[in-house]
Nucleic acid binder design. Structure first.
Lengths: 123, 123
DNA sequence: ATTATTGTATTAAGTAGATAGTACAGTAAT
DNA sequence: ATTACTGTACTATCTACTTAATACAATAAT
């Protein structure tokens, strides 16, 4: 999975979210060692300080932990990961429906549009 | 409808979007005169310059127009408004589904979660 | 004519985010 | 011991966003 960074929001926030997503989707597995700050920064075409800032946040939440000089690892607490997954899903759904309703779509219309889109797409 | 402004994105961008939403949802009607920059700025608890910046963007898109000294009005081009509504809806749906799939949810799971949420909510 | 209100422009200041460059301390591998 | 890699810290600089405080020209209302 590639890094997808826009300029309309802080980069470190987007990196934070995308690392979370990678952990949740199993791209980075529980207990697995993460690439180094410098490596990931190069990969994302970002300053190491920016990547570092994202990691600092991730650690406050407990999702990853640091072994001072040998790198970082994803938490082995799978229930924590599962919980975060649910949280993010609920939040996605809620803000999606809110936005659609504010545009003036009824529940039924939202339902129909989602159904139609899900049918149409690939895979 | 109240202003909902977060600090994680530029204020003027959020104002821009929310004015678009108000026009699309009919809160500000086609041809209607808009409140002044200063008035809206006070209402949103924001500097007039920030509100002005949002309006400048809205004008580039043609959604509103300016009568130099008597204020601004919403476009009367209802098909333009309708088109913007569709655009924003499609974009909402797409990025919602993308985000869910990246979290690891299948189309069927997305469908079920959306259905369940739509059933549960109010109104 | 005067007054108030409109959009608009300008300058200055403060803040947050991002980059660049450098440095240090701890550990693993050799 | 040396080397290479790790996270971490620090300073300086640049840009974008936001606020503040004015100011001006055009029009609507009086």
């Amino acid at each position: 999975m590639a890094w997808n960074l826009q300029s309309d929001r802080p980069i470190y926030t987007q990196i934070l979210e995308q690392i979370q997503t990678r952990i949740i989707s199993g791209c980075y597995k529980p207990g697995e060692k993460l690439p180094s700050v410098r490596e990931l920064a190069a990969e994302a075409n970002v300053n190491p300080n920016t990547m570092q800032k994202a990691f600092a946040e991730l650690e406050r939440s407990g999702l990853i932990s640091t072994q001072r000089t040998s790198g970082r690892t994803v938490t082995e607490d799978t229930s924590m990961i599962e919980q975060l997954k649910n949280q993010m899903a609920v939040s996605q759904i809620q803000s999606f429906i809110d936005a659609m309703q504010q545009l003036g779509y009824s529940k039924e219309e939202i339902y129909n549009l989602v159904t139609k889109t899900l049918r149409g797409g690939n895979e």
